[in-house]
């Protein structure tokens, strides 16, 4: 369906000529990639290799390390209940916050992409929470809003509902963290908005000639053209969510509490490395995380052939 619309719309004589550009461009590519390659070799690969090495040692930061083979990995899987707890917390966080945040961001982006008066103001307003980022003020702010006698509970009390402390009750604390992450949906929204700019208006014109409804337009034009950007957002939000650290750190005062209910994987990793002087163990955790994220990314890339539409016609 969508493919039909696209080809109909393409100006005549501009059919794809893949074969023409199929020669190698090693030299020019090297030129464009040179800063990145330099950074990779000089700044990135070294530290990555070092951390991989540390993952097989008992490195404590403060003194030199000793090779201990797979000890860190076996401890992690067999004798560390907090490791399992942090995995659990992180998985819930990823699978709840990422879809919510992206749907919210896409909905608002679509709403704001239409010609509404005062658009610039709205866009800015919706972005302001994201500007706060990981500011230290957030911790106080969030408690004031969702704490035991916070704003939300005072409003609820007016209608006679007695609510728990959403931030410091271990049953809900993770969800208040998820809410915080969804609240800061601005970055995804911006990426969606700039993606929406890529949808050429004549696609819509052509479709309205065809008599497609609004829903049809969204499904057959907006979504396909936006799919590379959606794909990007899904991948990046998943990776960032897996690594999520700052908000949990600030709100729980660095503890991951109460009762480890907000002990995100990266927070635990950080504590192991810097507070408990087990950088070797932390490095091992980091590489387990890389494997985990890598697995999810591979799955997403695999699925992308089914739903991501590139204007350059794939590779």
């Amino acid at each position: 369906m969508s493919a039909d619309l696209m080809t109909v719309d393409r100006p005549a004589g501009m059919k794809r000529r893949k074969t023409k550009l199929r020669y190698n461009q090693n030299g020019i590519a090297l030129l464009f990639l040179s800063p990145w390659l330099l950074g990779l070799v000089c700044l990135t690969l070294g530290p990555m290799a070092a951390s991989l090495y540390f993952s097989f040692t008992d490195y404590s930061i403060l003194e030199s390390s000793r090779w201990i083979g797979l000890d860190n990995f076996t401890t992690m899987l067999t004798a560390d209940p907090l490791f399992i707890q942090s995995l659990k917390v992180t998985f819930i966080f990823v699978f709840v916050s990422v879809p919510l945040k992206l749907m919210f961001a896409l909905a608002v982006a679509l709403l704001l992409n239409k010609g509404i008066r005062g658009l610039g103001i709205y866009r800015t307003v919706y972005y302001i929470p994201t500007l706060l980022g990981g500011s230290v003020a957030i911790a106080m702010l969030w408690r004031k809003m969702l704490g035991g006698d916070g704003l939300l509970n005072q409003l609820l009390a007016m209608v006679g509902i007695q609510a728990p402390d959403w931030v410091s009750n271990p049953k809900y604390s993770l969800y208040s963290l998820i809410l915080l992450s969804v609240w800061q949906f601005g970055s995804s929204m911006i990426i969606f908005l700039s993606g929406l700019k890529q949808v050429p208006p004549e696609y819509y014109d052509a479709s309205s000639v065809d008599g497609a409804g609004k829903v049809g337009q969204f499904l057959h034009i907006t979504l396909p053209v936006l799919s590379p950007v959606i794909f990007f957002n899904v991948i990046m939000q998943t990776i960032t969510a897996f690594q999520s650290f700052t908000q949990a750190f600030i709100i729980s005062n660095g503890s991951g509490g109460p009762v480890n209910s907000t002990l995100m994987y990266s927070l635990y990793l950080y504590k192991k490395g810097f507070s408990f002087f087990q950088m070797g163990y932390a490095s091992a955790m980091a590489w387990v995380l890389v494997l985990l994220i890598g697995l999810f990314t591979l799955l997403l890339f695999g699925s992308s052939k089914l739903w991501v539409h590139y204007e350059d016609g794939g590779k």
Binding site: L40, M48, S51, S266, G273, A282, S283, L289, I293
Partner: peptide
């Protein structure tokens, strides 16, 4: 490089 947590590098 995106996937590796900052704290260990």
């Amino acid at each position: 490089t995106i996937m590796l947590p900052l704290h260990v590098t």
